Amino acid sequence: MSYTGDVTANGPADVREVPGLSISKIEVGDFGNNAYLLRCAETGDGLLIDAAAEPDRLLGLIGDMPISTIVTTHRHQDHWLALSEVAKATGAETVAHSLDAPELPVPVTRTVEHGDRVTVGVVTLEVIHLRGHTPGSIALLYGDGHIFTGDSLFPGGVGNTERDPARFESLYTDVVERIFDRLPDETWVYPGHGKDTTLGAERPSLPEWRARGW
């Protein structure tokens, strides 16, 4: 079965293999959050993006193989409800941007800034700071083909900025300059909720997003 990124509540993970990495996507919680388990193909080490909810299901997804890191994309509660339990059960390092880390329920082992690197086994992910949905929202980029955007970029628009023009301008500008202006159309987008997309599918709509202001 080919990967689609379409997952459902209580449903199985959707798994894809890309060079150097496996990516497992699962939906958890009452808000339809996506959690992503990345595993290094060479070492088997794992990294979880957003321990959002349902710790038992996340731990089942992780299984007997270790994970060394849990990255939280931003401070909103629906993205960290299972963080305490999963971190305790796995002993994994917890990572978040310095501006959002104080709002998380556990002390963050490592804070990151724009341009920092996070590793899983021999694989390196780049931290991209996207300011606006929250002050410390981040995305993780693998190569130039796979980006995990939290709640900053979805099919159909950028993340919620609560109709605040300054926050929208900040997020829109960061998404354009740090993602669309840099990466090719083939780049796959893995958001914090809902279906996946590609930059090519969304790029024609950028002027519409700016004009509507959300």
Rank of each mutant, 00 (worst) to 15 (best):
G200T: 05
A201C: 09
L141C: 08
G121D: 04
V120A: 13
G192E: 06
T69F: 02
H79I: 01
H76D: 08
E42N: 09
G20L: 05
D151E: 13
H74M: 06
K25T: 10
Y172L: 13
R57W: 03
Y3V: 03
W188A: 14
L183G: 07
T4G: 10
W188K: 12
T187H: 07
D78Y: 11
N34H: 09
A13S: 15
P207D: 03
N33F: 07
E177T: 13
G11L: 01
E126C: 05
H114R: 03
P55K: 06
D6Q: 11
D164V: 06
L206G: 12
Y142V: 02
G213V: 01
P66S: 02
P165I: 00
P66D: 07
S137T: 14
H146S: 10
R117T: 15
F168E: 03
I49F: 11
Y190K: 06
T134Q: 07
A92H: 09
I49A: 12
L206V: 15
G156R: 11
L37F: 08
S205P: 01
H129L: 09
D30F: 10
I67W: 05
D50K: 00
V15I: 15
S98T: 04
G115F: 08
L48S: 02
D50W: 00
T173E: 10
A101W: 01
V71G: 07
D164C: 13
G5V: 04
L38M: 14
T197S: 15
L47F: 10
L104S: 06
A53P: 02
V108T: 09
I128W: 02
D151W: 08
D196A: 12
G11C: 01
L21V: 11
A166L: 07
T72V: 11
